[in-house]
Design a protein around this nucleic acid. Structure first.
Lengths: 134, 134
DNA sequence: CTGGATCCAACTTGATACTG
DNA sequence: CAGTATCAAGTTGGATCCAG
């Protein structure tokens, strides 16, 4: 997907378990395209326990660049996962927190996280076996 | 992530809800990197009702290129989600089906799919509101 | 039929410098 | 403090041709 234009490349309708799925406007792809980024899910997890400020997030996630932090937060806010509150202090401070939608998604995300942790070893094993020179 | 080398770029350890998470070897990112591709999840959904052959998958998913179909199937097989069975016919036919791990992941994936369908409208609405010229 | 190999355009991310 | 702008580099996915 092209995040700049919002346009997607030609997808048509296909059947999933007999249910027609419009590939040009697929909810699953739409959600996945927007939370599948490198930092998006992590951001939601970081905010699970309460709102944090821009600088706090940058400190908590040392590897993220300023640019990606800004972009990730704006994308998540745009899709309704995060709320953004500006406090008119000097200098200004901005706080980000999960919305109702964000907390709703957090539940699904946590299942995914749990599954990943539980099955990571099995995956690594399968991978090693596949890569084995035989 | 670099799929060729398997190397990841410098990620360190951060805290998620007080729990240290090794960013250089994060199970969640590892799983997400490998099933977050354009076709991977769709492939698992397509095989939910039983094994399918290469040519059947290509027919059922018209938009996928031969290259991506091959690559997606191999990636999923490598990670243990799919099994690959070759029938020594002439010409050869190959059947792909979900493994136990694949079916296990399917359950999580279905929750994600359901959530996406349920909340897609809310997301679209939030997006439109955010983009409103105001 | 089921792939492998190559080339290439688009998209994503990072580094760095600058601003209200 | 919380961003924006610009440039550089890496990855992904698609088109096409070839092979067992």
């Amino acid at each position: 997907m092209n995040k700049a234009t919002g346009k997607v490349k030609g997808r048509r309708a296909i059947l999933i378990g007999g249910v027609p799925m419009d590939m040009d406007n697929c909810p699953v792809r739409d959600v996945m395209d927007h939370i599948g980024g490198k930092w998006n899910s992590l951001m939601i997890l970081m905010l699970a326990d309460g709102p944090l400020r821009f600088s706090e997030l940058r400190r908590l996630i040392p590897d993220i660049s300023q640019r990606m932090l800004t972009q990730t937060l704006r994308d998540l806010q745009r899709d309704g996962y995060l709320s953004r509150t500006v406090y008119p202090t000097q200098p200004p401070s901005v706080e980000y927190g999960l919305t109702h939608l964000g907390r709703s998604f957090l539940a699904v995300l946590r299942l995914f996280v749990d599954w990943s942790v539980e099955n990571h070893e099995a995956i690594r094993k399968a991978r090693a076996e596949f890569d084995a020179p035989v």
